[in-house]
């Protein structure tokens, strides 16, 4: 074996080990949470409200709350995000104004989530008088999710070969028909990836819901979008820091349920993606 080959082998081994290093923390976290929490996850835990100062019973209202928040966030952020990305990529001319918008979108994703929380509190809870509610929380989370959804959608649209648009337009199709039939179908896998990524983040955020929706303890289910709800990440924060003598396994079990929920969302997106990828024939 010559020197170049040996060098290559060494380099690949080092790269491989570094990649492994990235995976280890993820696997350890999951392993640790499962090990400590799995014992406490039971049917009762998943379907009952908390009792006895949250030390007994389950986390059902928090699960429902988080699911409602994800749905609410999705309802606001998906149409807004995808439509603005379509506008930016397919319609907008390249000028100072659109460049400013694009720059803002990129920078928005760098804003700390607690700032979104404060913003949501001021705008939705106080000024628009939605109160501490599912509506205010969903809107706040939606705004936080927008940059990632827009960026992912933009990239997905841009990765569709220009020739598809050219073919369609050259046959006399309108811009919208071109987008609808020759661009969007091929961008969906990328859009899904970005959307689920950003919704997963929204599902796990504590700061934006802290002042806008989350209830400390509310064993009943919400009646309207103007109700407060419990939510998994906030509940986890509460039982881990605010309740004395809390059994650790309940915290880990709550974390495990949250991870499970996010994992489930990812699974759905993987299945959808695989379905749409079959159409990718270029």
């Amino acid at each position: 074996m010559n020197v170049a080959k040996i060098r290559e082998k060494v380099a690949f081994t080092i790269l491989g080990l570094i990649t492994l290093l990235v995976v280890i923390p993820i696997l350890l976290t999951i392993f640790y949470v499962v090990k400590n929490g799995a014992g406490a996850v039971s049917w009762e835990f998943l379907t009952q409200p908390p009792r006895a100062g949250m030390k007994q019973g389950g986390i059902f209202p928090a699960i429902v709350g988080t699911i409602l928040l994800i749905i609410g966030t999705m309802l606001f952020s998906l149409p807004l995000g995808i439509l603005s990305a379509i506008y930016l990529v397919e319609y907008a001319k390249d000028n100072l104004f659109t460049r400013l918008i694009k720059l803002s979108v990129v920078n928005l994703s760098g804003i700390p989530s607690i700032v979104y929380g404060l913003f949501g509190f001021t705008l939705f809870v106080v000024i628009l008088r939605f109160g501490t509610s599912i509506l205010a929380g969903s809107l706040t989370l939606a705004i936080m999710s927008l940059p990632v959804i827009i960026t992912a959608t933009k990239e997905a649209l841009e990765s569709v070969p220009f020739s598809f648009r050219e073919i369609s337009l050259s046959l006399g199709a309108s811009r919208w028909q071109t987008i609808r039939y020759c661009v969007l179908p091929y961008a969906i896998p990328g859009i899904l990836t970005g959307t689920v990524l950003s919704l997963s983040r929204a599902a796990g955020e504590t700061a934006p819901i802290l002042f806008t929706v989350a209830a400390f303890y509310l064993p009943r289910l919400p009646h309207s979008i103007f109700d407060q709800v419990m939510a998994l990440p906030y509940h986890l924060y509460v039982i881990s820091t605010q309740v004395p003598n809390m059994p650790m396994k309940l915290s880990f079990a709550t974390g495990l349920v949250l991870i499970g929920l996010v994992f489930l969302m990812n699974l759905v997106s993987i299945i959808l993606r695989a379905h749409y990828r079959k159409k990718k024939l270029w």
Partner: peptide, 11 residues
């Protein structure tokens, strides 16, 4: 109508 240089078919 136009025919492009490289055959461009939709996928």
């Amino acid at each position: 109508g136009i025919i492009f240089a490289l055959p461009q078919v939709l996928p």
